[in-house]
Nucleic acid binder design. Structure first.
Length: 650
RNA sequence: GCGCCCGUAGCUCAGCUGGAUAGAGCAUCGGACUUCGAAUCCGGUGGUCGGGAGUUCGAAUCUCUCCGGGCGCACCA
């Protein structure tokens, strides 16, 4: 039997099992899948199964008659108060309300065997981060929080492509466009008045123009890449310095929105430690790649994809012997899955023992075991589906079917700009462009919203609000709360869209703090906390354990049955684990965001409708307090899973 | 040309493996602060779910087709 960690999920399993067994014994047929849906209204029970519609056909009886018979034969189920026939033949299931609420206080989350590796962020270290990168990080970080909540052991990797074309392009900019030496670049980095990642953002945008005018064949890029790969020269030194400096900016930016990592694997180390050679031997031995002796790909090692013909062959090793990005990614993927006979060396990053970086020079002992993932998630936008598929095929071609299945591309759509927003940022648009639903951001052209700029704006707007609402609050507190609200607004904004929706970014929408936004959820939680704080102030001797003890009070079931609106709130609060599990199985963090919003709405409704502190009936007052405690806890947990903090006040 | 994604209210989006009267937010109109804080709450307006056909007891959801839009398919990453 499945190991469930929630009273509700246990109940689901029991209901399905019972109905399944009853159908089998009653009619001697193989039961269809027992779907459990939500009812339209809480008064109709919590769960509904339409299974009798399907059974009616096989049994040639009306659905309602089938439902009657099935309910009678099923008998009682632990946690279920009653089952009823409803509508044209639904089975409506009414849970034992008190049992659900009592079960909600038990929280077990034992660690599960088998490590999960999640790779996210992966920004090319050649310029400042933009909103697209924030979406990736928000999705990836929320996902790892949900996995950990479910008891999974998770390792977070942020891959650093420090020897790629994008870094090379910025180096070309420094060396040939600005004619700067390594020491001059170093001086630039040391200049406290200058944001080096922003500087590179602009420089990178100029490089395409430079190529057009001076180097149409991109010879300088090729030369730079070659020098970077060889190492031990000024170009390689500059690339290393530039890339790792920008990595530090990226980490600082992500830390602002509560995103962190366990390991930074670097492409340069994959090269120097010859991961590719190990992977190449495997691929060649298993005939996963072929040496092409004729045609357009003559002289290359190619991978044959599942499609017909040879036109779609993917080049893995170029005719000049260099490896493509996909080749290196296959090697990295094999390492993550524990299928490569080779490991990195590791060092703490900037002396931080909680964040490690790979190295090919001198490793340090005492690092955690990295890699060897049982399941690997790669959080990468949908435009890379084709390449991810090639990597997947590579793992499969080596015969690792199980590992290929557990190697998952967590894809999501990009962040674009509304035409109005693009123009606001100075992007020139044609009349055609203005009619389009969105304009793609382009790092190459320097078009886009920088992550830190957006965060700065959000923070200053939030601080303004906090200051006007709390005139006597010290500045340090205003800043702290403003920051928390800004992060709440941003992370919720990035999470509320389902992953295959393109976000058309717009400042007005992103800077909104009303309605379906992070601050709304934070506000509801703060209000809940304030009710408790207020009570502590006015009645210092009040014993809060009494509210929890009320769980076992014989009056609780009656009160729950009498108030459908309150029950709906508590039931909603009880579903967090169920939703978290759904996020993992569907790879859809947006459902957590939507859930948390609905919960906040119900909670807001509750504290408007009921006076808690001034309630004169002592039992009723305890009951309401229990509701506040129970719900604010669920809200806080839900927000935490999204990386959003609850301010002390707002 | 091949492949993937999208089309639901004026706008931005939800709608779980098909299920009961298609939901939110924004915008708009009208109400609610002397009682736990109005970043809130209550109510109104607003939808032939892109068109058509099919499967089904039942379709926004599945299949086909057409229309409209986005993205991918390099000896770039």
């Amino acid at each position: 039997m499945l190991r469930c960690r929630s009273m509700l999920l246990d109940a689901h399993a029991r209901i399905k099992e019972t109905l399944n067994a009853t159908i089998r014994s009653l009619w001697n047929i193989v039961p269809p899948d027992i779907a459990l849906n939500q009812t339209p209204k809480i008064e109709m029970g919590e769960l509904a199964s339409p299974v009798c519609f399907e059974l009616a056909r096989a049994l040639k009886k009306p659905p309602r008659a089938v439902a009657e018979e099935l309910i009678r034969a099923a008998g009682g189920i632990d946690g279920v108060q009653k089952m009823e026939v409803a509508g044209a033949g639904y089975i409506n299931i009414y849970l034992n309300r008190a049992a659900v609420v009592r079960g909600g206080r038990i929280r077990t989350s034992r660690a599960e065997a088998g490590k999960v590796i999640v790779e996210h962020t992966n920004i090319n270290p050649n310029k400042a981060a933009h909103i697209g990168h924030l979406r990736n990080a928000a999705i990836g970080d929320t996902f790892i929080r949900v996995l950990r909540h479910g008891g999974k052991q998770v390792e977070v990797q942020n891959y650093i492509d420090n020897t790629g074309v994008q870094v090379a392009d910025v180096i070309v900019g420094f060396k040939y466009l600005e004619k700067k030496s390594l020491s001059e670049v170093r001086a630039l980095i040391g200049d406290p008045k200058l944001r080096f990642d922003y500087y590179c953002w602009d420089l990178y945008a100029k490089v395409s123009g430079f190529y057009e005018a001076n180097d149409p064949k991109h010879a300088r890029r090729a030369q730079t890449l070659k020098e970077m790969e060889e190492g031990n020269n000024e170009t390689a030194g500059m690339a290393e310095l530039v890339a790792m400096t920008i990595v530090r900016y990226h980490l600082a930016t992500m830390a602002r929105i509560n995103v962190g990592y366990d390991l930074l694997p670097r492409e340069s180390d994959i090269l120097h430690l010859k991961f590719w050679e190990k992977a190449f031997l495997q691929l060649r031995e298993r005939n996963a790649i072929f040496f092409e002796t004729e045609g357009k790909n003559k002289g290359c090692w190619v991978m044959r994809l599942e499609t017909e013909g040879h036109d779609d062959d993917k080049i893995i090793v170029r005719s000049n012997g260099t490896v493509t990005y996909v080749g290196k990614d296959i090697a990295y993927q094999l390492w993550k899955l524990g299928l490569l006979d080779q490991d990195f060396l590791y060092q703490p990053f900037d002396g931080n023992k909680n964040l490690w970086v790979t190295t090919s020079a001198e490793g340090q002992a005492g690092h955690p075991p990295f890699g060897q993932g049982k399941v690997v998630y790669n959080v990468i936008d949908v435009r890379q589906s084709y390449l991810q598929n090639v990597v997947h095929q590579g793992v499969l071609a080596l015969g690792y079917e199980e590992q290929a299945k557990n190697s998952i591309h967590f894809s999501y759509e990009v962040v674009a700009l509304t035409p109005a927003c693009a123009e606001q940022l100075g992007v020139e648009l044609s009349d055609e462009d203005r009619k389009r639903p969105h304009i793609e951001v382009s790092g190459r052209k320097g078009q886009g919203v920088k992550a830190d700029d957006l965060l700065d704006t959000l923070e200053s707007e939030a601080c303004k609000e906090v200051a006007t609402r709390n005139p006597d609050l010290p500045k340090a507190d205003v800043d702290k709360i403003g920051h928390q609200i800004a992060v709440g607004a941003l992370r919720y904004f990035l999470l509320k869209f389902t992953r295959n929706a393109i976000i058309a970014f717009d400042f007005r929408e992103a800077l909104n703090f009303d309605g379906e936004t992070g601050p709304y959820l934070q506000y509801a939680t703060v209000r809940g906390n304030n009710i408790v704080n207020k009570l502590r102030e006015s009645e210092p001797d009040f014993d809060f354990d009494k509210a929890y003890l009320f769980l076992d009070d014989p009056k609780l079931p009656g009160m729950l049955d009498a108030a459908n609106d309150i029950w709906e709130l508590l039931y909603s609060a009880s579903r967090l684990n169920e939703i978290a599990q759904q996020v993992v199985s569907t790879l859809e963090p947006a459902s957590l965001a939507k859930y948390a919003f609905t919960l906040a709405q119900r909670f807001s409704l509750f504290y408007h409708r009921y006076r808690i502190m001034s309630e004169t009936d002592p039992d009723r007052r305890l009951f309401y307090l229990l509701v506040v405690e129970y719900t604010r806890r669920a809200m806080t947990n839900a927000l935490d899973l999204m990386g959003i903090e609850v301010p002390n006040r707002m």
